[in-house]
Design a protein around this nucleic acid. Sequence first.
DNA 1: AATGAATGAGAGTTCATTCAT
DNA 2: AATGAATGAACTCTCATTCAT
Lengths: 216, 216, 216, 216
Amino acid sequence: MARKRSDDKRGRILEAAVKVFARKGYFGARVSEIARKAGVADGTIYLYFRNKEDILVSLFDEVMAEHIARARQEVGRTKGAAARLRVVAEHHLSLFSGNADLAVVFQVELRQSTKFMERFTATWLQDYFALLTEVMAAGQREGALRSDLPLKLATKAFFGVLDEMVTSWILGRKDYDVGDLAAPVVDLFLRGAASPAKEREARPALRAVASARGGR
Amino acid sequence: MARKRSDDKRGRILEAAVKVFARKGYFGARVSEIARKAGVADGTIYLYFRNKEDILVSLFDEVMAEHIARARQEVGRTKGAAARLRVVAEHHLSLFSGNADLAVVFQVELRQSTKFMERFTATWLQDYFALLTEVMAAGQREGALRSDLPLKLATKAFFGVLDEMVTSWILGRKDYDVGDLAAPVVDLFLRGAASPAKEREARPALRAVASARGGR
Amino acid sequence: MARKRSDDKRGRILEAAVKVFARKGYFGARVSEIARKAGVADGTIYLYFRNKEDILVSLFDEVMAEHIARARQEVGRTKGAAARLRVVAEHHLSLFSGNADLAVVFQVELRQSTKFMERFTATWLQDYFALLTEVMAAGQREGALRSDLPLKLATKAFFGVLDEMVTSWILGRKDYDVGDLAAPVVDLFLRGAASPAKEREARPALRAVASARGGR
Amino acid sequence: MARKRSDDKRGRILEAAVKVFARKGYFGARVSEIARKAGVADGTIYLYFRNKEDILVSLFDEVMAEHIARARQEVGRTKGAAARLRVVAEHHLSLFSGNADLAVVFQVELRQSTKFMERFTATWLQDYFALLTEVMAAGQREGALRSDLPLKLATKAFFGVLDEMVTSWILGRKDYDVGDLAAPVVDLFLRGAASPAKEREARPALRAVASARGGR
DNA sequence: AATGAATGAGAGTTCATTCAT
DNA sequence: AATGAATGAACTCTCATTCAT
C-alpha cells in the first residue's frame, strides 16, 4: 500500500517479471529486460525490490497470499469433504488455467533451487497442507473419508496430483482447460482406481505408515 | 584401450557432480569444484562432457535408462495391476531413498528450466507414462481397475503422487524411508480416500474428461 | 546529453588501446589493461565497443575516414601529378611520423589475419587506391606521366613503397622523420632508378601487363 | 638432416602447418589440427619443434635460407643491374606464385607481431636488403643507375613494391600470375612513372636524404 | 521518485604443452 | 620415436547493482 504514487510501477514490474521469467527462466532473465518491459529504468526496479530474487519471491508471496485466503474462505462456506476438496482443486487449477506464464513461473522457475523450495514450503505450502489436512480430518469425523486414511500422506498425494496436472499442462500443448480437471481429479482421489467389485486380488491391509509424518 | 590411465574418471566426475549440484544448485555449481571433488583437472571434465549442461543431462540419461529398463523388466515378471503398480512405486521411490543428493538433483535441479523439463518429458517421462498406462489398461481388462478410469489422468495422478512423495521427503527432515511409502501410496491410489460406506454425500458421476488427453 | 559524466571515455579507451596494442600486439593485449590505462572499469569498454575486435576496427575506421578525407581534399586543391603525389605521400607518412604506436598498430597489428586484411582492403584501401589511380590517370592526360604507365600496377607500387617506408621506420631505430621521405620517394617513383644516360643496356619494351588488373 | 628416420615427419608437419596457418591464422591455428593433418600425434610435434611458434619460425627460416641462396647465386651469374633486379623480382614473386598458402603465411601470419617482424628483419630481410643494395651500388658504378640514387631508400622501395604485389595478389581473386609482374615492376622501378618529355613541371632536385639510413 | 552510465567480480571453456606408457 | 590423455593457466564478456544527477 505504501508507494502507490504514479501509475503502479510495482505492479507493472511484477507483470513484466512474470513474462520474462516464464520465457527466459529465472537465471536467464535479465533485470534490464524486465525494466524495459515494465517501462521503467533499470535502477527503478531497486526502488521497489531489494534485488532480482526479491521480485520472484514477492510475486509468489502476493499471488499466494490471496490464493490461500480465498480458498480457505470458500472452503469455510462449503459443507462436506468431497465438495470442499473440489473447491480446493478448482481454486488451485483455475489459478493457473488462464495464465500460462504464471503457471510456468510457479511450476518451474520457483523451483530453481532448494533454497526457493524450502522457503516456499515453509511459508505457504505449510498453510496449504494444513488446510487440506483439516478438510480431510473433518471428512473422517463426518464419516465421508476412511477412518484409516493416513492424513499426511493423503494431503501430499492430493497436492501431488494437482501439481502434476498443472505441470503436465504447461509442458504440453495446453489444448484443454486445466480447470476442468478438478472434478475428475477429486473423484479419482476419493473413489480410487480399483474396481469396486467384491472379489479382487489380495488387497493388503493398509499398513499404518507412521513414517510419513515427515516434515515439509 | 583408449583412456588408459583413467580409473573411471567419467564416473567419478558424475558422482562429484551429483554432490555439487545437490548442494549448490546447477547454476551455483562451479565446474572447477566438480573437478576438484572428482580429483581431476578442470580441463579433464571437457574430455568427457561437452559442457556443464551435458554433465547434468548425461547424469539424468544414464540413471533413467537403467531405472526404466529395470522397472519395465520387473513389471513384466509380475502379475496383477495392484502388484505391478507397487513394483513401479517401489522402484521409483527406492531409486532415491538411499541417495538424497541424487534425489535433489532429479527433483529440483533438473527442473531448472522449461528447457530441461521439456527434454525430460520428451525422453524418459514419456516412456514412464507409457509403462504406467499399459499397466493400468491391462488392469482394466482383467477387471482389477475400474472400467471408467480415465487412463491419462490416472497415469499423471499416480506419477504426481510419487513425485510429490520424493520432493516432500528431500525438503523435509528425511527421518523416514521414502521407499516405505510405496505400499500405502498404491493402496490410496487404488482404494481412494472415501469411506466405502453405503451412504455418502453426493458422489458425482465421473464426468469423462476427454480433455485430459493433453500432451506431456 | 547521453553519457553525462563521460569526459570522452570512448576517446580515452581508443588512446589506451593504441598504446596497449602497440606494445603487446592485438592477441597479447588484455582488455583489462586497456581499461586500466583508460581509467575505466572493464565493463565500461563494452558500453562503447561490441568487443575487443571492435576496438581495433573502430580505431582503424575512424583514423582512416579522417585521413582519406583530408588527403582527398588537399589533392583537390593541388595541381599537377607530381605535386599531388607528393601531397598523398606527405599525408600518408605524416599520419604516422608523430605517432609510432599508431604506426605499429596500423602496420603490424591490423594485419593480424586475412580477415582484418580483407576488411581493410574492402573499406579504405579501395578508396585510397581509387584516389591514387585518379591522380595518375589525370597525370597521364596532362602529359606528366607516361602514357604507357600501367595504372593499377603503378598505384600498388606507389602504395607499396610508402607502406614499406613506414614499416621499415617502425621496426628500425626511428632516428629520422618518416615524413621527410615523401619528396625523395615521389622523386624516385617519378624519375625511376635508371640513369637517364643515352646508352643503357637493353631496356625491354614495357610488356602491357593486363594481368595486374587483379582485385585488391 | 638429423632426424630423417621414417617418412619425414618433420616435413609433413611443416606442410600441414602452412595449410592450417594460411586458413586459420597463426593464433587461430590449433596445434592438434596441424598434427591431425600431418598424420601424427599431438605430442609428436614437440619432438620436432620446441613449440607452436617454432613451427612458424622454422618454416620461415628454411624457406628463406633456400630462397636467398638461390637468388644470390643466380644474381652472381647475371650481368647488368636491370637484369639482376629482374632476377631478384622473378625469384621473389615466383616463390609465392605457385603457392598461395605459403604466400598468406609469409605476407600475413608472419607479421603477427613486432616480435616476429623484428626477428624476420634481423635475419633474412637484412641479407635480402644487402643483396639488393649491392646490386644497385654495382649498377651505379657501371652507370646503369643514377649516381644520385639514394641506395637505402631505393632498396626499401624495391622491396616494398614486390611485397605489395604479393599481398595484393593473395587478398585479391588471384586470377593472374604474380610471377608475370616481375618485368613490369622492374621496368617501372627503373624508368619511373614520369613522362620522359623534355619539359615537365618543376622536378625538385633530389634532396639527399641521409636520414633514411635508418635500420631495418 | 527516477534515471541509466558506470562498475567489477566472476566463471566456463580452450588449448599449448607435458609425460607416463 | 611415438602417443594422446591429462593438465591448468588464462581471459573475455556479462549483468546485477549502485549512485551521482
